[in-house]
């Protein structure tokens, strides 16, 4: 579904991605783990065209999206719940969700709302509340729900567990599983919480300093001694 071949991306003169190749197949949950500053977020942003890949190719459903503008990439069926959630704090939950539906047909609005309210019932209770007044967990749910409103085929998640209490993290990961299993949305997820992410994912990649260092199925990576030493026993998990 999504294929990156030998992608390079820069922030000014700084090389953030150095020849990254990643593949996400239809129906999978793929996770990308790595330390702070490894380039995980940059990779997700590059898929959406900001910053652009300076070299390499990004294919989505067989079409080259490397040089397409962001809004066009989103219109093709990719949605992102960006790093730090980035909900609209002064707009209500409902307005946030409506904005998520910008690229979806308007007649599907009610159905899509129903769908995200089933996944996150708390959002229905909070519908008329301002985004900024929600708790961290609720904001993360809103961010994911907002992304889902566009009926994406591929959902990009950037650290959905960031800054959340362990209970909420569990709940969020459970829901991500549901979105994939029951709704057939392919998921590509960046995480620091390697333990949870690898248990949930079908496959995973490990990124170090802008290159992919390891890849394998979730169970393989969980068992890998290097991964264990670097990401699982260092206080995470």
């Amino acid at each position: 579904m999504l294929g990156l071949t030998d992608v390079y991306a820069y922030y000014g003169a700084i090389e953030a991605l150095r020849g990254v190749s990643v593949e996400v197949k239809t129906g999978e949950i793929v996770t990308l783990i790595g330390a702070n500053g490894a380039g995980k977020t940059t990779l997700l942003m590059t898929i959406c065209g900001n910053p652009r890949a300076r070299q390499g190719r990004i294919l989505f459903d067989g079409a080259d999206i490397t040089d397409r503008p962001t809004y066009e990439i989103i219109r093709r069926g990719i949605a992102q719940a960006p790093e730090g959630r980035r909900i609209f704090p002064r707009l209500t939950v409902m307005e946030n969700l409506q904005l998520g539906a910008t690229t979806a047909p308007e007649v599907h609005l009610a159905r899509n709302l129903e769908r995200v309210f089933t996944l996150f019932p708390i959002l229905k209770e909070r519908a008329d509340q301002r985004g900024g007044t929600l708790s961290g967990g609720e904001q993360q749910m809103l961010s994911i729900a907002r992304a889902l409103m566009s009926e994406p085929r591929l959902l990009l998640l950037d650290e959905p567990s960031l800054g959340l209490a362990p209970m909420i993290v569990k709940q969020i990961f459970r829901t991500i599983g549901e979105i994939n299993r029951d709704q057939g949305v392919t998921i590509f997820m960046v995480e620091q919480n390697a333990h949870h992410a690898l248990r949930l994912a079908h496959r995973g990649y490990v990124m170090v300093n802008g290159v992919i260092a390891l890849s394998g199925t979730g169970t393989e990576l969980l068992a890998n001694p290097e991964v264990r030493a670097a990401y699982l026993e260092g206080g995470h998990g």
């Binding site: 962001t70 949605a79 992102q80 980035r86 609209f88 998520g100």
Partner: peptide, 10 residues
Amino acid sequence: EDDIACASLG
């Protein structure tokens, strides 16, 4: 409110 989030919504 947030122009990056805006872009990410297409």
